[in-house]
Design a protein around this nucleic acid. Structure first.
Lengths: 137, 137
DNA sequence: TTTACAAATCGGAATCATTACGTTATTATA
DNA sequence: TATAATAACGTAATGATTCCGATTTGTAAA
């Protein structure tokens, strides 16, 4: 997902393409890992932009619902990143820099066999650690 | 893990077996799913017990570090349950009642092959949905 | 291009889980 | 039972997130 695809998606769903929305998309497009609402706020403030919590959180949630951003919760704080593809996948997440590596292994086929009377609504599979770069710092 | 095992573990590590600690263990022993600090507080208050946040959180963390309680984070809130065994396993977690079912499938052996230069520090694999009981309510 | 209105943003207060802290009480041990 | 260390109390502080009334902005129609 890139910025233009995301903007098109917004418009085709009747949402307005505002300046703030573009700024937020630009930020996540140039990152390649999970970032928090606070990371985003700091970035925008450095660009001499004013930001309201309302605007930040409303749009992060909207983007997540629309599939523009993926989200995960790490130590009590929501983290967001650009959606990196339409195929089902999971992530290695670096504890230091938040950057990710896609993992194509998914154990759900195996698991479903042992949950026959359960209604499965979702699952989470994440691997945490240090990426090659952060191991040398 | 049952209450007596946990109390022995506490004592053998030099921790005191206080009334509050027993109350907290009793609570988790009679539950069979993930519960929050708030769930515990409400339970203790109903028993006409006074509770300090300090006591609750300090002991929840202690129990987690000692392996007496397992923990996971669901929608921004930490959840705890009695440790249900020494073997490595994962959980199906009911979105309605918090009860769990152990899952023995673990995909990490497969995954490690694609993360050769990464330092793996942990992983999380959880399945969410409705248990058989909660589907009928 | 202006107008009009719905949608979005602003600024700040409120909320909720969790942590921190000085004081008081309880536990284990001698 | 006296002692010292550990734990609990009560409450204030913190940090992320949500909420809200007032104001501004984007878009579609005139």
């Amino acid at each position: 997902m890139n910025v233009n695809e995301a903007l098109d998606l917004l418009k085709s769903n009747g949402y307005k393409a505002t300046g703030k929305r573009k700024d937020i998309l630009d930020y996540f497009a140039e990152q390649d890992g999970y970032r928090t609402a606070k990371d985003l706020i700091i970035h925008l403030e450095n660009g001499n932009d004013t930001v309201s919590f309302d605007t930040i959180y409303r749009n992060l949630h909207l983007y997540n619902e629309m599939g523009i951003l993926e989200t995960t919760e790490l130590s009590g704080e929501k983290h967001f990143r650009m959606n990196c593809g339409n195929h089902h996948h999971h992530h290695f997440i670096c504890n230091e820099c938040g950057r990710t590596k896609a993992i194509d292994v998914c154990p759900m086929d195996d698991v479903k066999k042992s949950l026959v009377n359960y209604a499965i609504e979702g699952h989470k599979f994440e691997i945490y650690g240090l990426c090659p770069t952060c191991q040398n710092n």
